[in-house]
């Protein structure tokens, strides 16, 4: 049993929780995730560790309520518990000093980007962060991630805050202005990671993306999380979740994420769980 110590609403349908998980907090590295299960009848879902405190034995998670399990998680209160959490899972993000790193976060992906941004900064890089959302109400973690970055750029689709446009817009401008960029890391909706990778490929800027396929065990046992990278099949929970964005088959990922759409709808409409 893992106790929820803190819970906060960030923006509509995105929540923050800090959970007591000593062993995971002691080991987790930026880029890794956990798999949790809420109840005996619940499913196992992967969520990135958005922050951690090793001394206090706490991990934080930021999640978007989109379906049955994330909505149910959103209903839990401080002091209540999560039945199962296993982790840390996946390979840590490869962090080294490369010069200038541009960290690009879309939507709730910004949460997963946070510990990575910090690690790149601590490794001595110049960090430019671009975060984006639909509108002003959908920007998360701006202050926190801004404090770690040398430069922070915010974009909104509707122009209600920051630059009007997608996260690719300022990135495109930086490339056009021949700013020195040594590496890009992008985390967010698949379509956004695809767009960023497409943009940087033409000018050969190394780009890492963090893939979010459907997962089950998260240990390499089932193979549901397979993605295509450089025309080879990889298990994202095991070989990833980070991969070279220039080699990823994003269309396949988007398609595979649709596998259970019909069932997800049934599950959501089933009504409240008796807890």
């Amino acid at each position: 049993m893992y106790k929820i110590l803190v819970k906060r609403d960030l923006i509509p349908s995105v929540k923050f929780i800090a959970v007591e998980a000593k062993d995971i907090a002691a080991k987790v590295q930026p880029g890794q995730f956990v798999i949790l299960r809420l109840t005996e009848k619940g499913e196992r879902i992967p969520l990135t560790v958005a922050d951690f405190n090793r001394q206090l034995g706490i991990i934080s998670i930021i999640f978007q309520e989109i379906g049955r399990t994330t909505k149910e998680l959103g209903l839990l209160k401080e002091g209540e518990t999560i039945t199962n959490i296993v982790g840390p899972l996946g390979q840590p993000t490869h962090i080294e000093k490369v010069g200038t790193v541009v960290c690009v976060g879309g939507g709730v992906g910004t949460a997963a980007l946070y510990p990575i941004t910090r690690a790149f900064k601590e490794a001595g890089n110049r960090v430019i962060t671009i975060i984006g959302g639909r509108s002003r109400d959908y920007i998360i973690w701006e202050k926190e991630i801004g404090a770690l970055s040398d430069t922070l750029i915010v974009t909104t689709d509707d122009g209600s805050y920051g630059i009007k446009g997608l996260v690719t817009k300022p990135l495109e401008e930086m490339i056009r202005d021949s700013e020195q960029i040594d590496q890009v890391i992008a985390i967010g909706p698949v379509i956004m990671m695809k767009a960023v990778s497409h943009l940087t490929k033409s000018c050969g800027i190394k780009t890492m993306v963090s893939l979010n396929p459907i997962m089950l065990d998260g240990t390499g046992m089932c193979g549901v999380c397979r993605v295509e990278v450089n025309n080879e099949t990889k298990f994202a929970c095991f070989h990833g979740p980070d991969f070279d964005g220039h080699l990823v088959n994003f269309d396949l990922l988007m398609h595979r994420l649709k596998t259970y759409q019909t069932e997800e709808k049934i599950s959501l409409e089933k009504g409240e769980h008796c807890r």
Partner: peptide
Amino acid sequence: NEFLTRVNLMKAYLFPEFDTP
């Protein structure tokens, strides 16, 4: 492994009573 894990461990044969599809 995926097929059997869904059905056995996660009890997907009892979906939607159990959440795993």
